[in-house]
Write a protein that binds this DNA or RNA. Structure first.
Length: 403
RNA sequence: GGAGGGGUGGCCGAGCGGUCAAAGGCAGCAGACUGUAAAUCUGCCGACGUCAGUCUACGUUGGUUCGAAUCCAACCCCCUCCA
């Protein structure tokens, strides 16, 4: 059992996969002011729910009095992390990276309190020190401490090689720079702990080793389990794509619905991982049976949405859900399409995005999946005379409003 | 460098001159059953189009043919074995 509040919390909520040195970390976390970081690459304009596991780690650290550092990989994104990939991904140019970075950083303000205090969160960009690295001095100062033998044994590299997939020298350097990041953060900000997903274990350990050799001993590492859903899929991938954290990539309504539609078997686990609800409250919600489980799912959706999008957004989404599902109405938060009445059903279906193409709209009509104001519509020629709720299936709804 | 094998729809994977918008599986969507769950069964699943039909697709570019994912040539990429 751990002594520190931080590790106790993480353990109780299911955040821990591996620790490099449990006792040392427990001791470090028990003392005030532990500084820890997680790195995020800027490969997309938004992080997604898959990243939530580590974001929550930073949040919990801050709640326990530690200082979280968000490292945006403006520098490492130029290289591309080969971990878990069979092929190199497209290289992003500087403009894309800068735009992604600017967009990503906004979401952290919801989860962390930034500031200069002892537990104020900090955001840094590794381009700050990586861009200016001089090759030869870097090789002489750090390269000699890095063992190629060991790097080759690293999963991210080994698996690639075993599968006879090409691995460029550029990608090979990713772990070198990540290791260097850790050392740099230790020096600049007294950062002792790097956290990350379980796939980052190798990279984290590299950093710790490098630190030991260049005068930053006693660095620590912690990884979270890869979060999968009960049916075995990686969390956060839906048909529509990733579940983005940024509101301009995914509406509050859809974000809330993502959580509301959680598989029964995942509800307790997700409540612990992704909300701040107290554990005894979670235990109570988790014990609910049958249709009562929906109460737990609403609680999960509310809490998760409140964290990421704010309490108002969560309340709005819940009200929309109640109006839409409970009362058969058309809640305010539903997606809207502006149309000229009367509008053909097929046009309405494509305009609202309920159907991706006119052909699909036609098929769904034939399947009896389309309803307007709760009435099934099967005639592809039907014209909808006035504003109202258009539904495809029981879950997907949209509002038609006058243009 | 030499000898073979291969590149097919979101993924896996059949097809090897017409009946191929292309078997099957997975994923996805919908219907039934439910609790906006799971499991199960059923249907759908390139685009446009009033079920006719048109267009775009089987690595790329040309060619043979009435007709090509299927044959030929060149090119690009990948794999296996040999050096």
């Amino acid at each position: 059992m751990y002594r520190s509040e931080f590790l106790q919390t993480l353990a109780a909520r299911g955040h821990i996969h591996q620790l490099t040195d449990a006792e040392a970390l427990d001791a470090a976390a028990a003392a005030p002011g532990l500084v820890a970081y997680v790195g995020y690459d800027c490969t997309a304009p938004s992080l997604h729910v898959g990243n939530l596991a580590t974001i929550m780690l930073l949040r919990r650290l801050q709640q326990c009095g530690g200082r979280p550092i968000v490292l945006l990989g403006g520098g490492t994104t130029k290289i591309g992390d080969p971990s878990g990939k069979d092929s190199a991904r497209r290289l992003l140019d500087d403009t894309e990276i800068a735009a992604n970075k600017a967009s990503i950083r906004t979401v952290f303000e919801r989860f962390l309190a930034f500031g200069d205090g002892p537990s104020g969160a900090l955001m840094v960009d590794n381009a700050e020190w990586l861009d200016g690295l001089a090759y030869i001095p870097f090789l002489r100062d750090y390269g000699r401490h890095l063992s190629v033998n060991r790097m080759l044994a690293q999963d991210s590299v080994r698996l690639r090689l075993e599968r006879e997939q090409p691995l460029s020298f550029l990608e090979f350097n990713y772990m070198v720079l990540q290791a260097y990041d850790f050392v740099e953060l230790a020096r600049r900000h007294g950062c002792r702990l790097q956290m990350g997903g379980s796939d980052q274990w190798g990279n984290i350990v590299q950093g710790i080793d490098l630190g030991r050799r260049v005068g930053c001993p006693d660095l620590l590492g912690l990884t979270t389990p890869l979060i999968t859903t009960a049916d075995g899929a990686k969390m956060g991938k839906t048909a529509a794509g990733a579940v983005w954290l940024n509101p301009d990539q995914l509406s509050d309504w859809d974000y809330w619905q993502f959580w509301r539609n959680t598989d029964d078997r995942d509800v307790g686990r997700f409540l612990r991982l992704f909300t701040d609800l107290p554990l005894d409250e979670i235990a109570r919600l988790e014990a609910l049976e049958g249709a009562e489980r929906n109460v737990a799912k609403v609680a999960l959706a509310n809490a998760a949405t409140a964290l990421c999008r704010g309490p108002e957004a969560a309340a709005r989404a819940e009200a929309t859900a109640r109006a839409t599902f409970g009362e058969g109405g058309a809640g305010e938060g539903l997606p809207e399409a502006r149309v000229v009445f009367p509008v053909g059903v097929i046009d309405a279906l494509t305009a609202t995005g309920l159907a991706a193409s006119r052909g699909e709209a036609r098929r769904k009509l034939a399947e009896g999946a389309v309803r307007f104001e709760g009435q099934v519509v099967t005639d592809a020629e039907a014209r909808l005379p006035h504003p109202g709720r258009l539904s495809l299936g029981r879950k997907r709804h949209a509002r038609l409003v006058p243009a």
